[in-house]
Amino acid sequence: MNIVFLQFLLGVLFLTIIFLHLSKKNSNSVLAYGLQSLVMALIMFDSFLVTPNFQLLLVIMVIVIVKVVLAPVFFMKLLKQHQLTFLVNSYLNIPLTLITLTVLTAVAHSTKLSPLTTIIPNHQSLLALALAAMLVSVFLIINRKGALSQALGILSLENSLVVFGVFAGLEQSPILQIGVIFDILIWLVIATVFISMIYKHFGSLDTSLMKNLRD
């Protein structure tokens, strides 16, 4: 695949995270995450085309199964099970959220961070966008009050990290990647169970209300 197509894929990944910030419906958010994971898998597939390695292909397949299929299905089931209108409340309103996203994207593209984005000079724009995706994902965890949105933020951060790693030529060994995917799968199961239990006990997923648990 050529670089323009890779840029397009990364752009889609970035936009899905922006969408997660703006989305008011949980089901839409889950679908956006599924799309984001698919894009990430495609980017990795490009890496496979450059250096054909069947272990990497295996990793991509596992990613597709876990992130593109299983994770969205888990979340959708959760939504259906509780007939959820899970909270999508955020701390900042839409205009302020957009301003913050712009600032974070600008920070990622600034020359101050060029040591990070010029690891591979040809990929500077791609790395800068991947870095912006990472920062924006972290901000998603911060800005959202709902536990599901925060879980999606963590998964988006993970996707952004993988993409950054691919463009920076920092892919680890396939065994390690499978380990990470397995880790995410377990995390996903535990998070889903916890989210479900929290909702059952407290009738809300607003984590800002849970601070009262301290005492």
Partner: peptide
């Protein structure tokens, strides 16, 4: 503060 959002911030 006890708020996870603040910690991530």
């Amino acid at each position: 503060s006890g708020n996870i959002n603040i910690y991530v911030f």
